[in-house]
Amino acid sequence: MKILVVDDSQFARGVIGKILSEGIENSEISYASTGEEAYKQYTLINPDCIITDLLMPGVDGKMLIKLIRHSDTNIKIIVISADVQKSVKQEVEEYGITLFINKPLDQEKQSLLINAIKEV
């Protein structure tokens, strides 16, 4: 399974990558640190699932989701964000996402993430 992880924090990318590589067999994980880079990666590698942060410099997570949804309504998108606002969660859910998880990822949230990806 090809998964694209998008987060401007290297630490956050590392944490998510470790959870995915330990929780999902035969996962091919790619990384992007900006929305722009993520969109390029998306067009190149055609991932099965995208995991993205929201608050990033330049093209942020919301914009990235909108860009992808413009041409692809099928790909699964999971948001992992520090933003706890209900209004933000509702807004991105309207764009069509599979799951919204708040950082940091404790054991419960890690299981939620893995299970959601396995259903892809």
Binding site: S9, F11, S81, K103
Partner: peptide, 24 residues
């Protein structure tokens, strides 16, 4: 990242309380 998570949580909850969307 530590600071981001911590501060977003405090301010974001204020956004929930006053029912206003906050941009960070």
């Amino acid at each position: 990242e530590i600071c981001n998570v911590t501060l977003n949580s405090v301010i974001g909850e204020f956004g929930n309380l006053i029912d206003e969307k906050i941009e960070f």
